[in-house]
């Protein structure tokens, strides 16, 4: 019961963000623009890629949204370790959950794209394996959270695991793609999108798309945090 009163008293770092509307409107506008312009603008016509280059506005943005959310999760895990506020644990876990959701979307969009460019749903590519293992790590995070019933203990133990999971994800994102070749555009001799996009038309959609999807991720996260807090307060 003491825990519940504590939660209502403390100010949530995302409470103001959840109440303000301008960024939600911005998010919706950017996403509408992304979907319409993403399918309609004139893209560079290239062999193999053809129209699938439009996947850049969706697939790549999913990973950016995922990394933003998982970084939020890491930050609040560390804050939970230093101040033991249950609120921060809820934010860390919900940010991770939303991050996993975007990671799964990234895998699906990538898999469909790979079917039409590389010819198979899954290949033995360094980035694909890294993404899959990152997902497994964060699934393990969810399992770990569900295995512990005590709230304080669950927060601390899962926060410690979260730090390890994030560091290992960084290894996959920052180090491995530089050590070995990937089939992805921009790696292993395949030109990146900046080389195709000579007149900056793709950038005009890509940057709003990137901001829009990331904002959507943050929006979903704030709603999930609110739901989780209400659940905790009602003790469901």
């Amino acid at each position: 019961m003491t825990m519940n009163t504590e939660i209502t008293k403390t100010q949530s770092p995302f409470r103001d963000l959840g109440k303000r509307n301008w960024w939600k409107i911005l998010c919706v506008l950017f996403l509408i623009y992304t979907v319409i312009a993403g399918f309609l603008i004139d893209v560079p016509h290239l062999p193999i890629l053809h129209e699938t280059i439009r996947n850049q506005f969706f697939h790549v943005c999913m990973w950016f949204a995922m990394i933003t959310l998982l970084t939020t999760s890491l930050v609040f895990s560390i804050r939970y370790l230093s101040n033991q506020k249950l609120e921060h644990d809820i934010i860390a876990s919900e940010a991770a959950n939303t991050g996993i959701f975007f990671g799964i979307l990234g895998l699906i969009t990538g898999s469909i794209w790979a079917r039409f460019t590389w010819g198979s749903w899954w290949t033995n590519d360094v980035k694909l394996n890294g993404a899959a293992i990152t997902m497994l790590t964060y699934f393990a995070y969810i399992v770990l959270r569900n295995a512990i019933t005590d709230e304080q203990k669950r927060g601390k133990v899962s926060a410690v695991y979260n730090v390890f999971a994030y560091v290992m994800m960084l290894v996959f994102i920052l180090i491995y793609p530089r050590l070995s070749d990937s089939l992805h555009p921009g790696n292993g001799g395949n030109p990146g999108f900046s080389k195709y996009d000579l007149d900056n038309t793709m950038r005009m959609v890509f940057y709003p798309a990137f901001i829009g999807w990331t904002l959507l991720g943050v929006w979903i996260m704030t709603i999930r945090i609110r739901i989780q807090k209400i659940k905790t307060n009602l003790d469901i």
Binding site: I133, T134, L136, T137, F139, A140, V143, L144, Y161, F164, A165, M168, V171, F172, Y176
Partner: peptide, 9 residues
């Protein structure tokens, strides 16, 4: 479950 994915790198 915790060890397998995290030991992969």
């Amino acid at each position: 479950i915790l060890a397998f994915p995290i030991i992969m790198p």
